[in-house]
């Protein structure tokens, strides 16, 4: 009996692991319109950010799913270094609503109040994963 239960448990764990691996293998997708997000990104974020290079703010390629404050070579503020975890689309949405609420004293002050614009910008970021 115990052997039977263990077999079931192993099967269940295997299924969960397989699902996790499948999720990890699928590119991150966000709900917004990435094409519209590209233009918005250039217009609203392009003063300080680009995909490939650290400028006033850190490089954004691969930011969705990336550990917070981990763009190589960028000098982050102590405020943002205090945050833990990764940039999910939900956390990016929260960030764009008010970076100073999420990390008071960070270098970014610009908000994107419009929900659709935020979703589109995040979709564009998600469409630009880290290069392998």
């Amino acid at each position: 009996m115990r052997r039977h239960v263990n077999a079931h448990a192993r099967t269940a764990i295997g299924a969960v692991l397989a699902t996790c691996l499948l999720v990890l293998a699928i590119p991150v997708q966000a709900a917004g319109d990435a094409a519209a997000g590209q233009a918005l990104y250039q217009a609203k974020c392009g003063g300080c950010h680009s995909l490939e290079a650290n400028r006033i703010g850190p490089a954004h390629r691969g930011v969705v799913g990336r550990k917070i404050a981990s763009a190589p070579g960028f000098a982050y503020s102590p405020a943002i270094r205090k945050l833990t975890g990764i940039w999910t689309t939900a956390r990016l949405d929260q960030w764009l609503q008010g970076p100073q609420k999420m990390a008071p004293g960070s270098k970014m002050y610009l908000n994107v109040p419009d929900q659709t614009q935020r979703a589109n910008i995040i979709a564009w970021l998600a469409a630009n994963p880290a290069k392998r």
């Binding site: 217009a43 003063g47 300080c48 610009l110 908000n111």
Partner: peptide
């Protein structure tokens, strides 16, 4: 364009 947005947005 980015600079104008950065100023107005802040």
């Amino acid at each position: 364009q980015g600079a104008a947005n950065a100023y107005v947005g802040q």
